[in-house]
């Protein structure tokens, strides 16, 4: 099994501090060992989902949620816009 902690943290957009690094590596190693057992299993063609029976769709009827309540949750707001980071 080949992975680098460095690459995985970059892909996951996680910054890892020097102090954490050893502990995380140990945990990833332990999880990786659990995965190795899967090497002998035949892979299926389709994804398997624990799908419940019956109808699970919603009607196309609008329900208004109090959007001010959501704006209250937002970190930074300017004239109802969520203020986010630069995107360049």
């Amino acid at each position: 099994m080949r992975y680098s902690i460095n690459k995985l943290s970059k892909l996951s957009m996680l910054k890892i501090s020097k102090e954490e690094e050893k502990m995380i590596a140990k945990k990833v190693q332990a999880l990786g060992e659990l995965l190795e057992k899967l090497d002998t299993v035949e892979p299926p063609k389709e994804a398997f989902v624990l799908a419940p029976e019956g109808e699970h769709k919603r009607d196309d009827v609008p329900v208004q949620f109090d959007s001010d309540e959501i704006i209250k949750v937002f970190n930074n707001v300017k004239e109802r816009y969520l203020k986010g980071p630069k995107t360049l």
């Binding site: 902690i5 996951s12 890892i16 502990m23 995380i24 945990k27 999880l31």
Partner: peptide, 11 residues
């Protein structure tokens, strides 16, 4: 750290 490890393993 536990959360980071599992996210990375999942990735």
């Amino acid at each position: 750290p536990e959360v980071k490890a599992r996210i990375m393993m999942g990735t």
